[in-house]
Design a protein around this nucleic acid. Structure first.
Lengths: 248, 248
DNA sequence: TCCCGTTTTTGATCTTGATCAAAGCACTCG
DNA sequence: CGAGTGCTTTGATCAAGATCAAAAACGGGA
């Protein structure tokens, strides 16, 4: 959690919210043109399944607006979200035939899509794109592994606090504000979806949210609008290191 | 868990147990020579820490022999393993300055190492290597996300069964035997390390192992030598899909 | 405005796995 | 051979979170 993901906000890619711009901030103009000519947009409504695990993959792309979730379901219905896709996040699997997980629109979502095959050709012919994509994938891997610590070892309260902190921080980055002091944002997930993400039941999520509210660590206006009066206070409840990340 | 990882055994790379051979099975001979001239070996004893989270990274490489673990520790001592590195697995972060997690030798381990900087140059100049590394990283990401399902939603019994099934299958791949019927192998982890990997306590691990033994799903000879009389039987306890993985 | 369906909150109880505690085993070393 | 040490197993109890069950709050039409 120490290292901010290499998204839009810390990459030199102007105002374009599309992740491939980030890819292309290091590209030659020619390559940018190639990508521009390939792209198309598609929108999905909240709750819609964008693609099922096992589906044949035709596209890769990135989230422009809204929030999508990667999710896995067991035969008996137990579900676990394995990734949140926020604006500027890459979606898809260059080099793979089928989707490994379900992709679900958590809110209304707009994607920017490219046909997979020409994109793969671009990767294979353009080392800068391939290595940029590698960096992004490594970041995702680190994030997944941080989440494993949360799922395996954190208490319900710590899980909720960590989740709120992540959303708040991510939101601050998008708005180019500091992640400190008083922060406000809209929760992109229902209690049910939060439970799926955190490895809890929705009742436990609700109870812990109520507890944090009771203790003044968060304020709830309606169900989705959150205010964190003091970000540092909330961070104390996450179980994470508070110091900025050891030596160096 | 449906898709076998692209390791040694299903890549055309002869008998060399080193992962970069796998990378190089698609390379030109020149590139192979470059890699050969860069490599060196280093061994670590069981229990030794190979590198700490935050350490400055000098090398990348791969596991030749033994088992290493990626691990995270919270201030109060709670620990979560976030990855197992088996022979042929890649270790390191091209494009990153510091290690994101601790790397610990679970057994005696031999690594094959390259200096990071020239390796990064090779990536940037050689699209085949970059895109191969991308594929490997995406595989790791999928594996991490499967593990998130295990950590977030599976019962203790399912966790143990899943772990044993993974080790057994991975072992079978290395020995070029089918992952079915009667299978024998040596557990690479102590009960304590298993607990760290599965998000359990060592007592719970021990109890569940005893239960599986009592029910005849596994046989224990000593503490580490395991026999699975019927792999399919054990798979029934993992909570995973039994069918070979939907359409396609 | 009032209804109706959905989402969320709250309450009561139960279960799984954690915690605390004590043996049991296998190995090494003196 | 026997004590010591580091795993591992087993037992007894506890508690966090799940489950079952209602009630409350919200939101969006008609």
């Amino acid at each position: 959690m120490n290292t901010a993901p290499r998204t839009l906000a810390n990459t030199d890619c102007g105002d374009c919210p599309i992740r491939y711009r980030a890819v292309c901030s290091r590209c030659e103009p020619d390559e940018l043109d190639i990508l521009d000519s390939m792209k198309s947009y598609k929108t999905y409504e909240a709750g819609q399944t964008i693609c099922w695990a096992g589906d044949h993959l035709q596209y890769v792309g990135s989230v422009v607006e809204g929030v999508a979730a990667l999710s896995q379901t067991m035969e008996d219905g137990r579900r676990q979200m394995v990734g949140l896709l926020l604006p500027s996040d890459f979606v898809g699997r260059p080099g793979r035939e089928t989707a490994p997980f379900d992709v679900i629109a958590a809110t209304d979502v707009t994607l920017c899509l490219f046909h997979k095959t020409p994109f793969e050709e671009l990767i294979n012919s353009t080392p800068t794109i391939a290595s940029r994509l590698l960096e992004m994938t490594l970041d995702e891997l680190d994030a997944a592994r941080e989440w494993m610590l949360l799922l395996g070892r954190k208490t319900a309260r710590e899980k909720i606090a960590s989740f709120l902190a992540i959303i708040a921080r991510r939101n601050a980055v998008l708005q180019r504000k500091p992640a400190a002091g008083r922060m406000e944002f809209i929760l992109p997930l229902s209690r049910d979806a939060m439970a799926d993400y955190l490895g809890l039941t929705l009742e436990t999520v609700s109870r812990q949210m109520s507890a944090l509210k009771r203790e003044g660590l968060i304020e709830l206006h309606g169900k989705r609008q959150i205010t964190i009066p003091d970000f540092a206070m909330l961070m104390n409840e996450t179980g994470d290191d508070t110091d900025g990340g050891m030596l160096s």
